[in-house]
């Protein structure tokens, strides 16, 4: 049997890779992809704890489904914003999007 801590380590590594992507990437679409990776890491944790503590309760799976919902909504709105910004500024590089500063 696989110990629970193995799943937690994999989820932590996936979260940190995603966090690095959010912090280091310049392209806004690439940052959004990294956000999806971190959300996946959270879901692995939810399902792993569901399986190893109380599989008869549906709480863990239910919350993982809600994370799916929020991730889908976030991807749709985020990509719509990126396309709208691209129309106006001809750029999706995050550090060039500075109109709100002035």
């Amino acid at each position: 049997m696989i110990p629970l801590s193995w799943y937690l380590i994999v989820a932590a590594a996936l979260f940190c890779i995603g966090m690095y992507g959010i912090l280091a990437r310049r392209n806004a679409v690439a940052m959004l992809m990294a956000v999806e990776l971190t959300l996946n890491a959270v879901n692995i944790n939810l399902i792993a704890f569901w399986r190893y503590t109380d599989p008869s309760s549906s709480a863990g799976v239910a919350w993982a489904i809600f994370v799916f919902t929020v991730a889908a909504a976030e991807a749709a709105v985020g990509l719509a914003l990126i396309i709208s910004i691209y129309r106006q500024r001809e750029s999706v590089i995050a550090e060039e999007l500075d109109i709100l500063k002035y």
């Binding site: 940190c16 966090m19 690095y20 912090l23 280091a24």
Partner: peptide, 12 residues
């Protein structure tokens, strides 16, 4: 990558 990528990697 942007200019802060080493710090991002360090934080991760």
């Amino acid at each position: 990558y942007n200019s802060q990528w080493p710090w991002g990697g360090l934080a991760a």
